[in-house]
Design a protein around this nucleic acid. Structure first.
Lengths: 332, 332
DNA sequence: TTGAAAGCGCTAACAA
DNA sequence: TTGTTAGCGCTTTCAA
């Protein structure tokens, strides 16, 4: 590459090294034996010319982009950047890179982004909280592009947190630590982990003899303002629980802020627990009691499974459960 | 696309529509007139077949990937996800997608990632806190791939916060509000915005008659543990300022935690200010006094400039300064 | 307004 | 151990 002229191609290398383009390709990609002297000479010319294979030419032949798509709700929710770093760190120097897209929780967006990424010829896809069903998806892809879902199992390879059990555990903790009434601020109906987290809460309440009329649920969206609104709605309905379990940390943070704004002390008047253990959870005061499930591990594992599939692994869907842990802090 | 067979190509479309591949291409990309009837028939077949242009074939001809690279220090620092969303939102439905990479503040990584992205044939590059010089860079690319730098100007298109002025303003604020001694916890020497932020601090100190012996600086890295360590180092050196200005919010958070762990009250015993106004800054207690400069706007603007250049805009380097604002909260 | 055909850069099948 | 060559799917020039 001389800085001004056109970029060197494999033919330039072949010509200068006095070999065929096939040999240059073999030197680069392995696959068949090349004489040491030939290899050395070729590498020399490659270095001299600063030759880099053109990705389009290569892709056109190999149908590999060395790109994976990552589709998630919203990079602004601090849970996801951590997850993405998990993916990126696993991809590392494998030659793969990640294209990250936000759905903002909209299934239509999700469908469209998956389609765009398929058009991009990504070699694999990581989707967080997939809402599409296998049949929708098969309609989209039509080919065997590996897909790993982070979240609810739906017949794909997936890695997930057991939202149901984790939510039940947190609810049980709140009840057993002495909060006689516990409400739940849930995510939007049918979106991501909202369902199983809500179900886990309800199951734990039932198990403690609290019928659904004693287990108030407000749906809202997974943001701070969502949490704040939900708290207000709860109070306006005349419901004043001793504790609130929120479906994620952002909501919990919003609920705490709204509660404090109305003169309620946390946790004395109202205890609040969250879900995710985003890193702020331990920084705010009161520090947030929440469910920890390693975002980085989710991303890391998902990327690992994806690379396995891309590498040709076959067999039944992978199914990896990531541990969770109750982080008992000050807010509840 | 029939779900099992191979994917439809432009030739399949041409055959079925009874036109040439050239016409199909024109229908898709415009550029020359196509008879209404021909166009309609072609579009029909395209829809029927679910035809999607292959990106490699197209790229091989057009040398466009419709991909932009984003190189930044670390997605785990909450400042950057916001910036990335700014980029993504600006790219929006333009057909461009972003490949995001972390340098972890290492110039070697930066060089390598830029090279990898160039190999990927990205149509443009956004780099945050570029450490390479124009000549290093020209050696890497050798071609006119547009580059927008977020951070220190170096002869590229760039969008930036005036770190020097902002830091001086914050330091001045601390001094004028009554803190008689102010120390600075700086970033790693020569990395990102560490230099100008430190210089701004020093200039303001000088302007208030405080020589460099009265303006202690500790270098550390841009993380919470970095901030905590730096605070400890300061104390162990026997320096106990009334206030500390940290080069970013994570450091400030770490410093506050370390200070509190040593029994110091913030801000009564020690005031702490940060830089970035990451969204946690307003959530922690005491809420962090910091410099706000809109991360999303930085990303958004950079992506906009990049698209302009990709679209063919020529002329001297763009040079956009993003406003900053002192966010005076409880910690100082 | 349309078609034929060259060719982007690469890999891999086949031949030597 | 190496070379020749077809062809991946597309855009675009040239010709009609």
């Amino acid at each position: 590459m001389d800085g001004t002229g056109r970029r060197a191609t494999i033919r330039d290398v072949a010509r200068l090294a006095g070999v065929s383009t096939a040999t240059v390709s073999q030197v680069l990609n392995g696959g068949r034996p090349v004489a040491a002297a030939t290899r050395a000479r070729t590498l020399e010319v490659i270095a001299e010319l600063g030759y880099r294979p053109n990705i389009f030419g290569r892709g056109l032949r190999t149908r590999r982009s060395h790109l994976v798509g990552v589709v998630l709700p919203d990079l602004s929710n601090p849970f996801y950047p951590t997850l993405v770093r998990g993916v990126q760190d696993r991809l590392g120097s494998s030659g793969y890179h990640a294209v990250v897209c936000n759905t903002d929780g909209d299934p239509g967006q999700e469908r469209e982004l998956v389609a765009e990424l398929m058009d991009r010829e990504v070699d694999g896809l990581v989707v967080v909280h997939f809402t599409l069903k296998p049949k929708d998806f098969s309609g989209i892809t039509g080919r065997g592009v590996p897909l790993v879902v982070i979240g609810r199992p739906r017949g794909f390879d997936h890695v997930y947190t057991n939202d149901f059990r984790a939510s039940a555990a947190m609810t049980t903790y709140l009840l057993e630590v002495g909060y006689t009434s516990v409400a739940h601020i849930a995510g939007p109906v049918g979106i991501g982990p909202a369902g199983p987290r809500c179900a886990g809460y309800r199951a734990a309440m039932r198990q403690h003899g609290l019928s659904s009329s004693m287990a108030p649920v407000v749906h809202s969206d997974f943001s701070m303002t969502g949490g704040a609104k939900a708290l207000v709605e709860l109070l306006e309905r005349g419901i004043m629980p001793r504790a609130i379990f929120c479906a994620n940390d952002l909501m919990a943070l919003g609920a705490i802020e709204a509660a404090q704004a109305r003169g309620l002390r946390v946790p004395e008047d109202l205890a609040v627990a969250g879900f995710d253990d985003i890193y702020v959870a331990s920084l705010v005061r009161p520090a947030l009691t929440t469910v920890g499930h390693a975002a980085a591990a989710l991303g890391n594992t998902a990327a690992g499974l994806l690379l396995d599939r891309i590498g040709g692994a076959s067999g039944p869907p992978f199914d990896v459960e990531i541990d969770f842990e109750l982080r008992k802090r000050q807010s509840a």
